[in-house]
């Protein structure tokens, strides 16, 4: 309940600065590979590797507007929890400069590390009651693979983007990206570690553009 109130508050606070762009949006559908696994809870998905390609299972996409946008002075802190020996969420898109906390919600040690070029870090072994919560700031755009040195099966992805405009599709691939600036941009859809589809878009003030990624 508290969280929702905070979000509402934030939205209210944000209204004055984005009111001019309020009506501009992109919606559509990203064609996702069919999932053969049993349907899972809406919010629960995991990272799978197939032929060296990392993706979510069931498949999800991240749609974002590519372009050079001014970086805000401060960004909200995000969290990737370690719960039931998985990363939750398994895929987290963030804007460059975002600080991500990795709280340990299990009863065991975890050792989060990444060897990804976008971010190499090693949080070392820590217990659930570790305070402050171990965190990292992601300053380079790119895909960061999260692993646990103790639990080899654990995989998480953080997609570090240069843009504040991004959204995750639902399991059907549908998305709606609102509050966009008008102008010519490239709309991109990340579907796995190897594939990012893109389409040029021209956004007009107050209009909702329909874009499908095949």
């Amino acid at each position: 309940m508290d969280a929702r109130r905070i979000v509402c508050l934030k939205l209210i606070l944000a209204i004055p600065c984005i009111s001019a762009l309020a009506d501009t949006a992109v919606e559509g559908r990203v064609a996702l590979p069919k999932s053969h696994s049993a349907p899972v809870q809406a919010k629960r998905y995991e990272i799978v590797t197939k032929g060296g390609v990392l993706s979510t299972q069931p498949p999800l996409a991240v749609v974002y507007l590519d372009g050079a946008f001014p970086r805000p002075a401060s960004l909200p802190v995000k969290q990737v929890e370690q719960k039931d020996l998985t990363f939750v969420p398994a895929l987290l898109p963030i804007q460059v400069g975002t600080k991500v906390e990795f709280p340990n919600l299990d009863d065991t040690y975890h050792n989060i590390f990444s060897y990804s070029p976008a971010k190499r870090f090693d949080l070392g072994r820590y217990r659930p009651d570790e305070r402050p919560i171990p965190s990292e700031v992601f300053n380079t755009p790119g895909l960061v693979t999260l692993r646990c040195d103790i639990h080899e099966h654990m995989r998480g992805l953080i997609l570090v983007l240069d843009t504040p405009y991004f959204v995750m599709t639902d399991t059907d691939g549908r998305f709606r990206l609102r509050g966009l600036p008008s102008g010519r941009y490239t709309l991109k859809a990340w579907t796995n570690s190897r594939t990012t589809r893109e389409q040029p878009v021209e956004l007009k003030n107050g209009e909702t553009l329909h874009v499908d990624f095949q």
Partner: peptide, 17 residues
């Protein structure tokens, strides 16, 4: 092979590690 770091180094293109 079961070491996550070895996998990470090989799969995440971090051969130096």
């Amino acid at each position: 092979a079961s070491r996550p770091r070895i996998h990470a180094a090989l799969e995440d293109n971090a051969l130096d590690l």
